[in-house]
Structure formats: structure tokens, C-alpha cells
């Protein structure tokens, strides 16, 4: 029994220690954001690595998720004779939840893990100590451009995912299942609000998720034990922790945004 409490205590202490270190890391990164104004080209390269490279997986997933929504939504709605509302079902679920959340999960798997592995390996191969010894601040030179690239890329990817998803639902519902095209769009437009559904749903959520996933990925990489085993563990932790963070934050954000 005593051992159990000791174990719980140790685990919570370890958790708070990591959270504290992570927060400190984030503060240090934010304090250096101004550096980017002098070297914008560094971010460009990272937007390419983080955003452009994730485009294909985001686009394909968005199309399929939209099509599945169209299919499932149609099957449910047709029993009540309200298949004209298919547009609302597709657009609402994509904009409020599936768009930002699935994009963030895919982003964590595709870009987050790559960021952790890259930074962790740079540490393992002495590239980060080498930067320090050359008088170059690795936080500024390596972390800040990647963090900002994550902040920029994630909302853009979520918007692309959502838009392609709506088109996927349209293709499936109108094109394959024969829902009336006019009803599909007009019902959607009747029930979708720019501020709540698009602004809060897609934009705000994806910015928050982007900030959190990129933070976790970079911190895990920078904090990784500089061995191949340490880097692989850090990469796993990035995917697990950022997925958990995204899902739990989504609950909180949904509670705050949509009453």
C-alpha cells in the first residue's frame, strides 16, 4: 500500500517536473520570437518541411473523411426523410470537430514526430552542442523557426482539410447518392455561422492545436536522451502526448465555444 502511494507520488512529481521544464522551454522560445524578423527565410524552409510535406496526407484524409460523413450521414438522415440536411451534418461536424481534431492528430503523426526525431538526432550527433560551441543559440536558430512554422502550417492545413472534406461530402452525397444539390448547399448556408463554426471551430481550434503539438514535438526532441533509444522514445512520446493533449483540449475548447 505504502509502495503504491510512493509510486503515485513519484509519477506525479515526474509529471510536474516535465511540465515545468516544458513550460520554461516554451517561455524561452517565445522570448526569442523576435529573432525571426531578422531571418524570415529560416521559417520558409520549415513551413516547407512541416506544412507542404504534410499536404498530401491531409488532402487525401480530408477527402475520405468527408466522403464517409456523406455516406453515413445520408444513411441516417434518409430514415427520417431529411436527407436535405446532409450538407449541414457534413459541414458542422467537419468545421467544429473533425477538421481541426483530425488535422491535429495527423499533424502530430506526420510533422510532430519528424520534428522530434530531427531535433533529437541533432542532439545525439552533437550538432546542438556544436552550435552552442560556435556561439549560436540553438533555441533561436533551430527551435524558433520550427515553432513558428508549426503555428502557421497547422491552421492552413486544417482549413484545407475541412474544405476538401466538405467537397468530399458533396461528391458522395450529391454526386453518388443523389441528394439535391441546391438543398445541400442552402441548408448548409442556413445553419453555418461564420464566427462560431468557421472562426471558432476551424481557425481558433487549429491555432491552439498547432501551438500545443509543435510545442510538445520540439520540447521532446530538445529534451531527448541523446541516444538512438532516447530519440525513439521521445518520438513515441510526442505522438502519444500530443494526441492526448489535442483530444482533451478539444473537449475544453468545445465547452467554451459552443454552448
Amino acid at each position: 500500500m505504502i509502495e503504491f502511494f510512493a509510486w503515485v507520488g513519484r509519477r506525479s512529481l515526474a509529471f510536474f517536473e516535465r511540465l515545468g521544464r516544458g513550460t520554461l522551454f516554451l517561455v524561452q522560445v517565445c522570448a526569442r520570437l523576435g529573432f525571426l524578423l531578422t531571418r524570415p527565410s529560416l521559417t520558409l524552409a520549415q513551413v516547407w518541411a512541416v506544412g507542404v510535406q504534410s499536404l498530401v496526407i491531409i488532402g487525401v484524409s480530408g477527402a475520405f473523411v468527408g466522403m464517409v460523413l456523406g455516406l453515413q450521414g445520408y444513411n441516417t438522415l434518409v430514415t427520417f426523410g431529411t436527407e436535405e440536411s446532409l450538407g449541414v451534418v457534413v459541414a458542422k461536424s467537419l468545421c467544429r470537430e473533425l477538421g481541426p481534431v483530425l488535422t491535429a492528430l495527423l499533424f502530430a503523426g506526420r510533422a510532430g514526430s519528424a520534428l522530434t526525431a530531427e531535433i533529437g538526432l541533432m542532439k545525439a550527433t552533437e550538432q546542438i552542442p556544436a552550435l552552442e560551441m560556435m556561439g549560436v543559440d540553438p533555441l533561436r536558430r533551430l527551435i524558433v523557426p520550427r515553432y513558428v512554422a508549426g503555428l502557421i502550417s497547422m491552421p492552413l492545413l486544417a482549413m484545407i482539410f475541412t474544405a476538401i472534406g466538405v467537397l468530399g461530402g458533396y461528391f458522395c452525397g450529391v454526386g453518388l447518392l443523389g441528394v439535391d444539390e441546391g438543398a445541400f448547399w442552402s441548408q448548409m448556408q442556413l445553419h453555418m455561422a461564420l464566427g462560431t463554426d468557421i472562426g471558432n471551430g476551424v481557425v481558433v481550434k487549429s491555432i491552439v492545436f498547432g501551438a500545443v503539438v509543435t510545442w510538445i514535438a520540439l520540447f521532446e526532441g530538445f529534451d531527448a536522451i541523446p541516444t538512438s533509444e532516447g530519440v525513439s522514445q521521445a518520438t513515441t512520446r510526442t505522438v502519444v502526448n500530443s494526441s492526448l493533449a489535442v483530444l482533451s483540449l478539444d473537449f475544453v475548447l468545445t465547452g467554451l465555444m459552443f454552448d
Binding site: 538526432l121 541533432m122 552533437e126 556544436a130 560551441m133 556561439g135 543559440d137
Partner: peptide, 19 residues
């Protein structure tokens, strides 16, 4: 400290080139 390091060159065991 960073200014001091600029006047020191260091050769790491693995080379530590930026990959």
C-alpha cells in the same frame, strides 16, 4: 559567453556537421 565561444573552434568527435 557566446562571444567568447566565437573565438574558440571545437572539433567534435563525430564531426557534428549539420546534416
Amino acid at each position: 559567453l557566446f562571444a567568447m565561444r566565437r573565438r574558440i573552434g571545437m572539433l567534435f568527435q563525430s564531426g557534428a556537421l549539420l546534416t
